[in-house]
Each structure stands twice: as structure tokens, then as C-alpha cells.
């Protein structure tokens, strides 16, 4: 493993507070929620793992060496969830298979299976939207999600997807950064959190308790 201090970008003489801050900044940057259904999610989760290991290594060595610096902060770091862990128990076996293909980033096959289905129900539109989303075709994806949500207004998964798209998703942004929607980034923070939580749930995770537990 690389030197844990250089992974976190701090010097070995940094205070506990500085180490913690560096860890939190990096964890915020590479948090799986920023890579929700993202083709680079695997690379981000490797990075997250590296950061978690570095942080754990530092806290452990400091606990052993410098008495009285015990951490109540432990209990493992931000847990990676999301990509690949989607739990789905639908009735239609074909859709289950398509979801698995989408999660494995096998978009071409997922799309051809969808195209072979002639009866287009709400889930069909939702899954087609997911294929487009992964491909980076955001506009078409949002239209398809909207169609799914209109056909089945009670479905939380579809509604959350529409909401997530309307809000402009979620991403890491430096404190002074601007967004593309013409609003102030900070104003949208709470909305984004709530929204990201919905989205997290969409892939089988839960963001708000996940922050709350830290």
C-alpha cells in the first residue's frame, strides 16, 4: 500500500484534526453517490477504498503510538454501496436480466433485449431510460423516465429518477464552484441531499442515515 499520509495528501506531522479534514474532503469527492450509475464508478470505489484504508491505518497507528488520542470516529469509513448491489425483486424475469446487464454496463445487449419486447409498459421505459443514462444521453433518459413515471405515478423508483434528473443530479463541487443551472450551489445543497438520498435508495442504499452515522 502507498504511504497513507501521501494518499490523504497531508504530512506525517499533521494534527489529528487536519488528517480528519483531509479524509473528509476526499471522501466527499469520491463518495459513491457522486458516481451513481457512472461508467467510472469502479475507479472511484477503488479510490475510496484506498482513502479509507489510509485513514484507518493512520488512526490505528496513532492510537497505538500517541496515548490518549483515541478516536470515537472509527467504525469503518464511508461505505461503498450502490453500483452492482442493486437488489431487485420484480416479477418479470426478463426485466431482472436486463437490469443485471445494465448494472454490468453491458448496454448494447440490454438495449437489444429491450428492443425485442413489443409491449412497452412503465418499467420498459424506465429501463430504456437507464440504458440511455449510462450512455450519457441525458436528455432522452429524462424523457423516458418521465414517461415511466406518468404511466405509473405511484412507483417511487420512477418518480425519484425523474426528480433526480430535474434537479441536475449530484456531484462533487469545490466550495467556490458554480453550477450549470444558474443557481447558487449552496442553495441547492439540501435539495440535492434529499434528492440524492432518494436516488441512493433507488440503487439500494441510503445516503442520509449514511451521513448521519458519521
Amino acid at each position: 500500500m502507498n504511504d497513507p499520509y501521501s494518499v490523504l495528501g497531508v504530512s506525517p506531522s499533521a494534527s489529528d484534526e487536519e488528517v480528519k479534514r483531509a479524509y473528509r474532503d476526499l471522501a466527499r469527492k469520491y463518495h459513491p453517490d457522486n458516481y451513481h450509475d457512472n461508467p467510472l464508478a469502479d475507479l472511484a470505489s477503488e479510490k475510496m477504498k484506498e482513502i479509507n484504508e489510509a485513514y484507518d491505518a493512520i488512526t490505528k497507528s496513532r492510537e497505538q503510538g500517541g496515548g490518549g488520542q483515541s478516536y470515537s470516529y472509527g467504525g469503518g469509513a464511508y461505505q461503498s454501496q450502490g453500483a452492482g448491489q442493486r437488489q431487485y425483486t420484480g416479477s418479470n424475469a426478463q426485466y431482472v436480466q436486463i437490469r443485471n446487464l445494465i448494472n454490468a454496463n453491458n448496454l448494447a445487449q440490454a438495449e437489444s433485449m429491450l428492443n425485442a419486447i413489443s409491449d412497452h409498459d412503465a418499467e420498459w421505459y424506465y429501463l430504456m431510460g437507464s440504458v440511455y443514462w449510462r450512455r450519457g444521453w441525458m436528455d432522452q433518459a429524462s424523457q423516458l423516465f418521465r414517461t415511466a413515471a406518468t404511466m405509473e405515478p405511484g412507483n417511487v423508483e420512477y418518480r425519484n429518477a425523474v426528480q433526480y434528473m430535474n434537479q441536475g443530479g449530484q456531484a462533487y463541487r469545490p466550495a467556490s464552484g458554480m453550477d450549470m443551472m444558474g443557481g447558487d450551489a449552496a442553495c441547492n445543497l439540501c435539495q440535492n441531499l434529499i434528492c440524492a438520498d432518494c436516488c441512493c435508495e433507488m440503487v439500494g442504499g441510503n445516503l442520509i442515515p449514511c451521513i448521519g452515522c458519521r
Binding site: K29, Y30, N34, Y35, N38, L40, L43, A44, K47, G136, M138, D139, S142, M165, N166, Q167, G168, G169, Q170, A171, Y172, R173, D179, M180, M181, G182
Partner: peptide
Amino acid sequence: RAGMQLSHNAISGAFAL
């Protein structure tokens, strides 16, 4: 613009890596 934001998010995610 919401759609452009999603593309911008993808840029952010890649840039961080």
C-alpha cells in the same frame, strides 16, 4: 440546463479521478 448539469457532473466525476 438540468441535462447539461448531468453532463457537468460526469465531467466532475472524471476530473476528480
